[in-house]
Amino acid sequence: MIDNNISAMCKPAPGEAGKTGDWRDMRPVIDHTKCTPYVKNKPACFLCWLYCPEGVIRDTIPVEIDLDYCKGCGICAEECPMGAIAMVAEGKQDG
């Protein structure tokens, strides 16, 4: 493909800064047995979805986190009212 642009115009794509999951020191690990939508088996809570600055948490049952792009800020763990998300050092076993 030849670049015919005469000025700088960008197209959208995920991963502009690469796989930002690489930025993490700690990764969020969900204990679904404590997670309200999972326990009740219906849409509920989803505060982790609401507060994630990256939009990488899916408000599904079970809740899913896209670890390719999660930067590991830890807001979800901090805001989870049930304490269902733990931040675990990268390289260590889950939970």
Binding site: P14, G55, D68, G72
Partner: peptide, 26 residues
């Protein structure tokens, strides 16, 4: 929309350059 009555569509794509925990980003 979801239970918050907020669109499911994300206009900011993952893997952007904002810092971890950026208040602006949220």
């Amino acid at each position: 929309d979801n239970l918050f009555k907020i669109s499911e569509r994300e206009y900011i794509l993952p893997g952007n350059r904002a810092c971890q925990g950026c208040g602006l980003s949220l």
